[in-house]
């Protein structure tokens, strides 16, 4: 509904996932939640729970083992949702690009809406990105957004259960 859309940017709740980062960006996210930068001014809550989040903050270049968790968490966030790639290595792989266990950025797996540069991204940049993400959130619809690739559990359940609509639809599209 039109009435509700302006409120999306006023209460963007975030989910933070570290997909193999050096934890530089992670501590900067923590600092951004702290009193100096105070993300809660914008209504941001760090929920830690994909089901109640709007913005997916991902750090790190996506290692081989974290990619499945990344996609799993992404599918659990209800639409409308926005993905923010925090830091250089999340956007391109950064210094880790080409290392044998690294997947060179998250946009190989999930659609990204905001890229933040920087090693590590400073809190100011993160705030800026969240404001931008709020605007993008407003322009999104409730239509299903699918990851580019699915792994394991969701796929099997999608095959087994016709009622798990989301996984099924995504799966159908892949075929």
């Amino acid at each position: 509904m039109k009435f509700f859309t302006p409120f999306r940017k006023k209460s963007p709740w975030i989910l933070h996932y570290n997909a193999g980062s050096c934890n530089g960006c992670d501590i900067e996210i923590l600092a951004a939640l702290g009193p100096k930068f105070d993300l809660e001014r914008f209504g941001v809550i760090n929920t830690g729970n994909p089901k109640q989040s709007d913005i997916f903050l991902v750090t790190g270049p996506v290692t081989y083992r974290s990619r499945e968790r990344l996609v799993e968490l992404y599918t659990q966030i209800p639409e409308p949702k926005v993905v923010v790639a925090v830091g250089s290595c999340t956007t391109t792989g950064g210094v880790f690009r080409g290392m044998y266990n690294v997947e060179d950025g998250i946009d190989r797996y999930i659609p990204v809406d905001v890229y933040i540069p920087g090693c590590a991204s400073s809190p100011q940049l993160i705030i800026d990105a969240l404001v931008k993400a709020g605007e993008i959130l407003e322009s999104k619809s409730k239509a299903i957004e699918k990851p580019f690739k699915l792994f394991g559990a969701i796929e099997t359940i999608g095959n087994k259960l016709s009622r798990l609509n989301m996984a099924k639809k995504v799966h159908d599209d892949e075929d």
Partner: peptide, 12 residues
Amino acid sequence: YDRIQPYHCGEK
């Protein structure tokens, strides 16, 4: 309504 899996810290 669509169904999802319970949250298990991203584990499957």
